[in-house]
Amino acid sequence: MDKFTAFESHVVPLPAENVDTDQIIPARFLKVTDKNGLGDALFFDWRYLEDGSPNPKFVLNEPASQGAKILIAGDNFGCGSSREHAPWALTGWGLRAILSTSFADIFKNNALKNGLLPIELEPAVHAKLMRDVQADRAAKVKVDLADQSVTLPDGSKVTFQVDPFAKRCLLEGVDQLGYLLGFDEQIKAFEARHDAL
């Protein structure tokens, strides 16, 4: 996995609450055996019209959204199913951070394992940022995981919380399975006791 470095980007505003994983990637796109190429299915039913053409009213299709690495959405982002296809679709489209006021648990876990940073902002900060990036689609936000900060378009800085373990993995570009595999001896000892029950 690539190391997660600080970056700056314009922002896609999606002012919807409870964006569930069925919206992020509808179930009919889950029949794949691979993780790649799911960016095309991201928000499919919002993104495309009945006849298959892009919905010009959906924010992801606006020219101003192209190339963005950050999405800002409403509360409880990623609720619903455990499909890791959701972060695969988001990163497949090019996103590296999602800003919201809260995230569903499983989504948050999945995102952090795929180089996608879920950032929880205070409701007031979130509401202002949503307004600001809607008003100026070129406005830039900087995300710095190392010092756990987001620099807003007006230059002010806010900090965010992140699980220290996930942070270390992201910054060093190591995956969590490597860490787990290091516990082989303890797992063996645990199994010797536990299997006997």
Partner: peptide, 11 residues
């Protein structure tokens, strides 16, 4: 998630 499925399969 699927990454965790892999973790559990392996460990």
């Amino acid at each position: 998630g699927t990454s965790e499925v892999e973790h559990v399969l392996a460990t």
